[in-house]
Design a protein around this nucleic acid. Sequence first.
DNA 1: CGCCTGACGAAAC
DNA 2: GGTTTCGCCAGGC
Length: 129
Amino acid sequence: MPAKKRAPEKIKPLKPSGKRDENFFELVFEVARQIPKGRVTSYGAIAASLGTKSSARLVGWAMNGAGRVRPKVPAHRVVNRIGMLSGKHHFSPPGMMEKLLKKEGIKIKDDQVQDFKKLFWDPVQELGF
DNA sequence: CGCCTGACGAAAC
DNA sequence: GGTTTCGCCAGGC
């Protein structure tokens, strides 16, 4: 029997209104803007704070528009859950993300954030969600 | 109109 | 324990 069914944890429904259009993106940007300087968070953490922890990909997708919203969203402070700069390839110069992070005092080693766990900023915890 | 891809995550194998 | 697959939603082709 082909193990092709993964439904581990059930995700909670989105807004009762069913409105999950660009509003979701706005929320992502809002949370991302709350990231303090010198700190980092993960896509999944943001998604979780919005109530859609399974939609971590959407957070990343939302970041695609991070550069076209104002004020600019510090997308460079958002990395995946292991602290890897998965999104560096999406910056103008791929090294920009790392550069910005280092500028804030964050050490990067091989596309990975050092002391990620220590620098991790959990929106759910910090924002009190 | 349908299939594939994508800056993730987590379980299944 | 590394690899694979699924789910999420949206957009591109």
